[in-house]
């Protein structure tokens, strides 16, 4: 494709050079707002923080800020809780989202279920932030519907078991409300990509349904499954609104810590704040990068 394009432009270049230049000039002008925007509102702000993370208050190069991410207990525990919640919500959301997508695509259920599930997933994956926190407070809060119903019907108080919506598991349970739909939306096309002939070919070669999944379907799907789970991880790692509306600042996760730092410099060190942001970029960047890499791998197979 690219070679073809090159050959074409070389062939037509000599007689029409001025025209070509003129047209490309328009093209460059056309895309310039995008690049100016990207530079001003994505690249420079990020670079500012990244550079700041390696400077002290006087602007000299230092690794102290980055080192403090690992040594300062409150920062370390914030990262740790964030990672735990993100892993839990990504893995559970990934597994359950996969199960639902499987049920709708392959499970032999009525036809209408699938579009219903997809539409609902589209809505629920966007239904995040502050209102989601309200919904779970109204349901599983101390006076929420499910909490009171359980007490009334079974004389069972979930809060007596140590459950707290404003805790690790409570936040994970809430995050699943957008994590599961996101998994469904991304993994369904991959499940559709499993061709009927693969199953039939494996079956006629003697394989059972289980062996088909073990040797063919799962190996084909795993880059998509793992990749999407990493995307879910990054998604919940960078989230703040739901957590903040749910717990205020009582839960020490890294986004809430950074929020407090931006608002009032709670770390008493601007540059340490930059390092905090850098740490987040590194973590979400790594998991998104792995996602993109795995995705490309599975696309290559599914051609």
């Amino acid at each position: 494709m690219a070679q073809e394009g090159q050959a074409l432009s070389q062939a037509s270049a000599p007689p029409a050079r001025t025209v070509q230049l003129g047209q490309n000039a328009w093209a460059w002008i056309g895309v310039s707002p995008f690049f100016i925007f990207a530079l001003m509102f994505l690249i420079l702000p990020t670079l500012y923080l990244v550079i700041g993370a390696f400077q002290d208050a006087q602007g000299n190069f230092t690794l102290v800020n980055v080192a403090q991410l690992f040594t300062q207990a409150s920062i370390r525990s914030a990262y740790w809780i964030s990672i735990k919640i993100s892993v839990a919500s990504a893995v559970i959301g990934g597994l359950f989202g996969f199960a639902l997508a499987y049920a709708a695509v392959i499970g032999g259920l009525p036809q209408w279920l699938r579009p219903t599930l997809m539409t609902f997933s589209g809505v629920a994956s966007q239904f995040a932030g502050v209102p989601l926190a309200f919904a779970f407070l109204a349901t599983l809060g101390r006076t929420g519907l499910v909490t009171t119903l359980l007490v009334m019907l079974f004389d069972f108080n979930i809060y007596s078991t140590g459950f707290n919506l404003l805790s690790f598991w409570g936040l994970t349970l809430t995050y699943l409300y957008f994590q599961i739909p996101l998994m469904i939306l991304i993994i369904t096309p991959a499940l559709d990509g499993l061709r009927r002939e693969w199953r039939e070919a494996s079956e006629i070669l003697g394989a059972s349904y289980w062996q088909y999944w073990r040797y063919v379907a799962l190996p084909i799907l795993w880059p998509a499954i793992v990749g999407t789970t990493l995307l879910l991880f990054a998604n919940s790692f960078g989230a703040i609104a739901t957590a903040y509306a749910l717990t205020g600042s009582s839960l020490n996760i890294v986004t809430i810590l950074l929020y407090a730092q931006i608002r009032g410099d709670v770390l008493h060190d601007q540059n340490l704040g930059y390092a905090l942001a850098l740490g987040m970029i590194v973590i979400t960047g790594l998991s998104n990068g792995a996602y993109i890499w795995l995705r490309a791998r599975s696309d290559r197979w599914q051609r």
Partner: peptide, 19 residues
């Protein structure tokens, strides 16, 4: 079941396992 028949089959779309 197909997996008990000892029959070989070739499909129009090749159906090779891509992995």
């Amino acid at each position: 079941r197909p997996n008990q028949r000892n029959v070989g089959m070739v499909f129009q779309s090749y159906a090779l396992f891509p992995n």
